[in-house]
Design a protein around this nucleic acid. Structure first.
Length: 420
DNA sequence: TCTGGGGTCCTAGGACCC
DNA sequence: TCTGGGGTCCTAGGACCC
């Protein structure tokens, strides 16, 4: 097998620039939820030494001095552009695996071109740029891991090699691996890099030369697979079907800290509602719910409470899920403490086609009709047009801040761009 | 004052079984 | 003083990714 991976250059910033030309050629950063940190930077912003995850309040001066443009994250837009560039990739390969919001693997060869892999990859880049408007880089290799390293090298060498690197050639691999630090490799984080250092493993070449048994010893079977993949042996299972979601989470900071039970309950209820909505959209049921509420980890002794519970029978009914989350809040809340974030996780997700019943609880026969009516109304008239009373109504101070969000240019009829 | 959100995979260790 | 062997299942927590 042979793989390629495409990633979009500075995806969120490139997306914002697509419909707002005033953002071109100036430093731009896109902010995390609650407008807290920088999570995407244009090349101009990177040149000003703005790092991934830098908190905005520490950047105030730099932002003012250099006229940096800020945008809240606009996931509706990014998700739509993701769908579009994957459609283009799908025209060039028989198998596309969406890896993240800005990266997709695809299987080689590039279809229909009769070109070599590298020329084919350039053709894919051109098609994405022309049809969607997004700049990309592509890495090629005999395993996913090698294509991922190739992609990182394509980023680093874009000016010289034009955004495509092919690591099929063993000699080229040897040469580049010696210059490529091991902690830049996909799957090597801080902890593993720290454990590899005493063994003298500094470059990708050192890592590739490690005997697999040693790799397993230093790390786990994951590191062993990584080493084998660097050597060109595919260890990742072939994944013809898109994998089912196993867990989902809705967690958010509060726009302003919360000190009282009622707002905490409403915030938790809203997250639980949204989580139930997400799994319904995927046709899934949850068997386990986890709720948490905590304070700022940058303050001494923040509150930190977690509760988990079984959902039996497995469900995606907001009355059960929001109800459970609300009861959790009762038992978590402590008077006099300051909360900054809460969330709900739904786990042990199974398809709703053949649900496991509960011996002791009769299913509500009207629930499916009720839920699809609610989802239909909310899809048509906007989120939370219909909701549970415990969620409260209207925008509240504890809702997440997104004060610099661009319009839903491509997904809402009222917000499409107008050309004159 | 202000520091994101959402995932997956693996392992160790406890509880339990015969 | 001495106290088996071989399993499964579950959970918490760590590590990694974007």
């Amino acid at each position: 097998m042979s793989w390629a991976i495409v990633d979009v250059a500075n995806f969120y910033v490139s997306s914002e620039r697509l419909f707002d030309p005033s953002l071109r050629r100036v430093p731009v950063i896109v902010l995390s939820n609650n407008d807290g940190c920088a999570i995407a930077r244009s090349e101009e912003a990177k040149a000003l030494h703005i790092k991934m995850g830098d908190p905005v309040f520490k950047l105030r001066d730099t932002i003012r001095r250099h006229g940096i443009q800020l945008r809240s994250s606009n996931y509706e837009l990014y998700a739509d552009l993701n769908r579009r560039f994957n459609a283009v990739i799908g025209e060039h390969s028989d198998l596309v695996e969406i890896y993240s919001i800005d990266e997709s693997f695809f299987r080689l060869p590039v279809l229909g071109s009769g070109l070599g892999d590298v020329a084919g990859a350039h053709r894919v880049r051109e098609a994405i740029l022309r049809n969607v408007g997004l700049p990309t880089r592509i890495g090629l290799g005999p395993t996913r891991t090698l294509s991922k390293v190739a992609n990182a090298l394509a980023k680093a060498t874009e000016k010289v090699w034009g955004g495509v690197v092919d690591l099929h050639d063993v000699e080229l691999r040897d040469r580049l691996f010696q210059m490529w630090p091991v902690d830049e490799v996909w799957g090597i984080g801080r902890a593993l890099a720290g454990r590899l250092r005493p063994l003298g493993v500094r470059t990708t070449a050192d890592l590739a030369a490690l005997p697999p048994a040693v790799a397993r010893d230093v790390g786990t079977v994951v590191l062993e697979r990584l080493v084998r993949e660097l050597g060109g042996t595919e260890c990742d299972d072939f994944r013809p079907e898109p994998e089912k979601l196993k867990a989902t989470a809705v967690t958010r900071m509060f726009g302003e800290p919360v000190r009282d039970l009622e707002p905490l309950r409403q915030a938790m209820a809203r997250r639980a509602w949204r989580a139930a909505e997400k799994i319904r959209a995927q046709g899934l049921l949850a068997s386990r719910i986890i709720g948490f509420a905590h304070g700022s980890r940058y303050r001494p002794d923040p509150p930190n409470a977690t509760r988990s519970a079984r959902l039996s029978p497995a469900t995606n009914d907001p009355r059960a899920i929001v109800g459970m989350a609300s009861r959790m809040v009762e038992s978590m809340f402590e008077e006099g403490r300051i909360y900054t974030k809460c969330g709900v996780l739904l786990e042990e997700l199974t398809a709703d086609t053949a649900p496991q019943g509960d011996l002791f609880a009769a299913a509500d026969p009207k629930a499916p009709a009720l839920l699809s009516a609610i989802d239909g109304l909310n899809a048509r008239f906007g989120r939370e047009t219909v909701s549970l009373a415990v969620q409260g109504r209207g925008a509240r101070t504890f809702d997440t801040k997104r004060s610099m969000k661009s319009p839903a240019w491509t997904t809402r009829i009222a917000e499409i761009p107008i050309a004159r």
